[in-house]
Design a protein around this nucleic acid. Structure first.
Lengths: 142, 142
DNA sequence: CCGATATACTTGTGAACGCAAGCAACTCTA
DNA sequence: TAGAGTTGCTTGCGTTCACAAGTATATCGG
């Protein structure tokens, strides 16, 4: 998943929004959950992963919940934590969104960078500070 | 000027804000004006350059004007356009901010990328869509 | 020279987001 | 085992932004 500049982000946002009603952040969250073990994460960890504040996560997940793409799940060992868990509908939407994303990115970047350069860019960006390690709390299979 | 990810941007923002009371966008605008011919630009062109909407520019410049860092100037040949012109105070602040920025960036990025890699990154980012060419309207020297 | 269209800018409104503050639950220390 | 501090989450509030609509000026076709 590539983190990109304002112009590209807005272009992507417009297309995702038109096609699926998702913002780029929505997509980022959904994809992160889809890739998480058991399709669920603590909200704190999710926040760190997608570079949102805890309050931002709360409100973003509110939206995804209303769309039925995500649901809450409790932690058996720590009553403070709530898991954000992706639903089946969420997985389908995530897959759609990923397809959109993958289709649009090369189209937008295509002209300006070669595939090799793009790879380099992704690598370099990935090594900047801001990647976060997730905490852990046991979660039994749904 | 490097366009960077959310985490770095927020870190920079915090420091600039503490030191000079400027957001990163403020800094970007001020520096752009400082580097512009005659220290002035049409607001439209400024907007395009710093990736803001026209309304965004209006409000951001409102703030900089109140701080006395920027002033309005009229165009003799087109009554629609207003120039944003940097003041002497603005130039001093821009220089301070640039020093801050240049000091902080390597400190934040230093560990993760070599100077060569950083250069590559800047080059690649610079070639992504989103750089804009400025329009032109004659402006006589203040 | 007059209407039609385009351009520069501002203002109203709403969305996204961070921060501060609050609450509940956990953990550590004595 | 009672406090004190920490952690996870939510809510209230302010800021920053884009988009839409409005105003003023410019330009162009007839």
């Amino acid at each position: 998943m590539l983190r990109i500049g304002a112009t590209l982000r807005r272009e992507l946002e417009a297309r995702l929004l038109a096609a699926l009603g998702l913002t780029v952040k929505d997509y980022e969250v959904l994809l992160t959950l889809a890739r998480a073990e058991l399709g669920a994460m603590r909200r704190v960890d999710l926040a760190e992963q997608v570079l949102l504040s805890p309050s931002g996560v709360t409100r973003l997940l509110d939206g995804l919940e209303r769309l039925g793409l995500v649901e809450k799940r409790e932690c058996t060992t720590d009553a403070r934590v709530t898991y954000a868990a992706i639903t089946d509908a969420g997985r389908r939407t995530a897959a759609d969104a990923e397809a959109q994303y993958e289709a649009v990115l090369p189209e937008l970047i295509g002209g300006s960078l070669t595939p090799t350069e793009l790879e380099t860019l992704v690598d370099l960006l990935g090594r900047l500070p801001g990647a976060a390690e997730a905490g852990f709390c046991p979660l039994e299979p749904a």
